[in-house]
Design a protein around this nucleic acid. Structure first.
Length: 120
DNA sequence: CTTTTGACAGCGT
DNA sequence: CACGCTGCCAAAA
């Protein structure tokens, strides 16, 4: 399934449990490739059923229009907040063994199709 | 090949 | 705490 980075990003986002969050940078690091911007680009094409509100900026915020639509979800899931923004220190998802295993699989699958660091 | 553009991150002021 | 600038990665023009 030679698909792309975007699929890996979406898959990882789907692993994040309710009430927990990850920053774009965290996602990039966990997948072992690309960067925060690349993750953001992938999220822009997120499927309607994806819990996109669990992936946010490193400072616990989101683009204004998105934050507006995300707030209800955060409230419903009991995501730790600090004022209007999310408390990253408390809400950051810390994968358990099973989580790491799943992430590992994604990272590997990704590396298998995007290993060629060819000149650009 | 160069420039522009993103649901970004860090650091300095 | 708020801005502004620089750094990053990949894709598109």
């Amino acid at each position: 399934m030679p698909h792309a980075y975007a699929d890996a990003v979406h898959a990882l986002a789907a692993l994040v449990p309710p009430g927990r969050v990850l920053s774009y940078g965290d996602v990039a690091e966990l997948l072992g490739g690309g960067g925060p911007r690349q993750v953001g680009a992938a999220m822009a094409a997120a499927p309607a059923d994806l819990p996109w509100w669990r992936i946010l900026r490193a400072d616990g915020t989101l683009a204004e229009d998105l934050a507006e639509r995300a707030a209800p979800h955060w409230h419903a899931e009991g995501t730790p907040r600090r004022g209007t923004r999310i408390d990253m220190a408390a809400g950051r998802w810390q994968p358990d063994d099973a989580g790491f295993a799943a992430i590992d699989g994604l990272a590997e699958a990704l590396a298998a199709e995007a290993p060629a660091p060819r000149r650009r």
